[in-house]
Design a protein around this nucleic acid. Structure first.
Lengths: 196, 196
DNA sequence: GTCTATACCACGATAGAC
DNA sequence: GTCTATCGTGGTATAGAC
């Protein structure tokens, strides 16, 4: 398929998304202007609307893309054969690893929920719930097996996810601890917390 | 001291701060206009500048006020005589209770850090560090006593604070569990997580 | 202490040339 | 596919009357 000379859409679109993600993470959705994003990509503001419907749609696409990647990466991860405790450890390592690799998307997806229109918010929340349900299922299995003892499954899931996601607030590659060391330390705390 | 007729500064100022806090929490600092805040208080936008230097100063004052209240409330709380484990439980209950009572201020103080000017950011970070150090001291004491076993004190502190603060993302008074029940459940997980 | 009025600037989004 | 130009709106902050 012949491409028009000067046509760079396949390059420009991902660059636009990357620039928007970076700027939204750094300064916040509301604080970033379309002109700023355009400058980062090397375009005039008007040209952005070849790729997006409006600013809200851009935010929503970024967040939905992140959540769908999260769910599909989890689905593609190979859970270990073994007891629920092994699967919990697998979840914790997956969560830390996936989130550490996409700090900007994680940040935007947690911080900009209130800037979504109601319909868009509901869609993102539904995706988040599906992910939380994966952890809850593991915790329920652990209790059925008797390898875990939890006062409340839903609260435990929320507590563990908050703890694991919190890694992103301070972890920097090249710091005092490697990502693998951080993983080990958190796995230890997670295993203990579920009463193993 | 005689007050000018029509003078309502002592009433207006706290109302302004409360309105700004509520709106910042709901929609985000960058998304809220001075006109919106003024409408909420029942003034014209220009009148707000009797009480604040500028929008940035307003945000900073709210956040500093929150952090200082947090530190002074913790200082005023009576830690139990007993081992570090008892003090850790005291910290967990204090943290959940204090934060649940000020959801808006907590939200703003965690979400709007990136909208602070560099100098203001450093000041808030310093206050946050002081609070984290309080928990770290308890965890160190527990390890010295031998009642806690932790792979890394600093990480454990960050993990526990993230977990406890996470309560605010889903807890609503009048929901499935009372605040006291939530406290008990989290205390249980915190105690287990430190290897008690 | 609060108002009205306004300076000045930036916003998101669109139209039409190239 | 990107540009220039622009529309209409709303932003923060100040000045000066009351």
């Amino acid at each position: 398929m012949a491409r028009k000379p000067g046509s760079r859409a396949e390059i420009t679109e991902p660059r636009l998304r990357a620039a928007a993600l970076k700027l939204f993470a750094r300064h916040g959705y509301a604080a970033v202007s379309m002109r700023q994003i355009a400058r980062e990509v090397g375009l005039q503001a008007g040209a952005l609307y070849q790729y997006i419907s409006d600013k809200q749609g851009l935010l929503f696409d970024l967040m939905r893309g992140h959540m769908e990647e999260l769910l599909s990466a989890w689905g593609a991860s190979r859970p270990p054969a073994g007891d629920a405790l092994a699967r919990l450890e697998h979840f914790a390592r997956f969560h830390i690893r996936f989130h550490a690799a996409r700090a900007d998307a994680v940040f935007v997806s947690y911080m900009e929920l209130r800037n979504l229109s109601p319909g868009n918010f509901a869609a993102i929340e539904a995706l988040r719930r599906r992910y939380e349900a994966e952890l809850e299922a593991i915790l329920r299995a652990g209790q059925d097996e008797g390898t875990m003892r939890l006062p409340d499954t839903r609260l435990a899931a929320m507590a563990l996810i908050a703890m694991l996601t919190g890694v992103n607030t301070w972890f920097r590659e090249g710091g005092r601890l490697s990502r693998a060391e951080v993983e080990d330390i958190y796995v230890d705390m997670v295993r203990k917390a579920v009463g193993a």
